[in-house]
Write a protein that binds this DNA or RNA. Structure first.
Lengths: 169, 169
DNA sequence: ATAAACTTTCAATAAATACTGAAAGTTCAG
DNA sequence: CTGAACTTTCAGTATTTATTGAAAGTTTAT
């Protein structure tokens, strides 16, 4: 396989992985492109490589910056913005986890907490109790996930991976 | 809050969580309904509760069965099929992980392996080397994830959660 | 073998999601 | 201050994904 074909394949696969995980395919493809690009890229270059419009490129690059997966940098002598991707796959993972913890796990926890205020009357006592029990279990689990994710996103690569590998062996 | 409102809220929240994770919203809502239903449910009941068509209910219930999140059961004296949801949230997590490992991580690993066959010529030697280095790192990481997921989906709840909580503390 | 009771399929349609490109906004060198 | 160089926004459009419902298929009791 030749390099351009390999790059294309990687970008496609990363895009499809992303889209299976609720991440817009184009954003995942732009991210893939950054992962395998040594040099800084401009918005134009991203547009050209992936054949997407300026608006699309701009929006998705901004989101990648928000997620901490891409950094803005300036080239001396150039007015244009350039971007550089975070290459360390462990950092990438940590940042994605952090965003999703905030965007998805936290709202879930809020709702689960709320659901614990459900009142019961004479008729549905048993049903309410069963519901509460189940919600409590889900909530405990979600809290474990939440605190684990907090630990993970603040831990050092070396420490975490080493300990984790030992744990998993 | 009253019970029906609480159930509705839980179903909506679970549905939105699912859809953020690339799982069809309706399938996640059906799953939520099963999580909080004590009794067996028929396809009709699912259709009625969630106001969805027969075809939609049928397809999503089948997928939930494939994922190991819902079981088919027969009521004596009834010809109709009934279904029961897996209630243990740890088992639910294990099964979702297993499906996604198979459907997403494995294809990714296949491609990463393939990409390691990229040939270089005189011109692009350095570029190919950088690409290979990055692919190798991603591949190692994906392999760690893959073997961890295998361990997780085959481990006993008690052992795993106990050890995991100790690890995370 | 028949037909009622049920489940599955899938083409047509609807709904949700993403993309484009031109216009508006911003920045900065001169 | 001006206008060229660039970035951002967003209404309209295209694409992708999910749903419906009727027809086809299957199972079972008689």
């Amino acid at each position: 396989m030749k390099l351009p074909e390999a790059k294309e394949k990687f970008i496609q696969q990363w895009g499809s992985l992303g889209s299976n995980w609720g991440i817009n395919r184009t954003m995942a493809q732009i991210h893939a492109l950054f992962l395998i690009s040594e040099d800084l890229l401009s918005a134009e270059e991203v547009m050209g490589e992936l054949k997407i419009s300026r608006g699309n490129a701009n929006m998705n690059i901004r989101t990648l910056i928000d997620w901490g997966l891409v950094y803005k940098e300036y080239q001396s002598g150039e007015r244009k913005e350039f971007f550089r991707g975070e290459k360390d796959i462990w950092k990438v993972t940590q940042r994605v986890m952090k965003v999703r913890q905030r965007q998805e796990l936290e709202p879930m926890l809020t709702v689960l907490l709320e659901l614990q205020t459900v009142e019961s009357d004479k008729k549905d006592k048993a049903e309410v109790e069963a519901f509460m029990k189940q919600i409590k279990e889900i909530k405990s689990f979600a809290e474990l996930a939440d605190s684990s994710l907090s630990k993970i996103s603040s831990s050092e690569e070396n420490w975490f991976l080493k300990t984790f590998m030992k744990f998993m062996k």
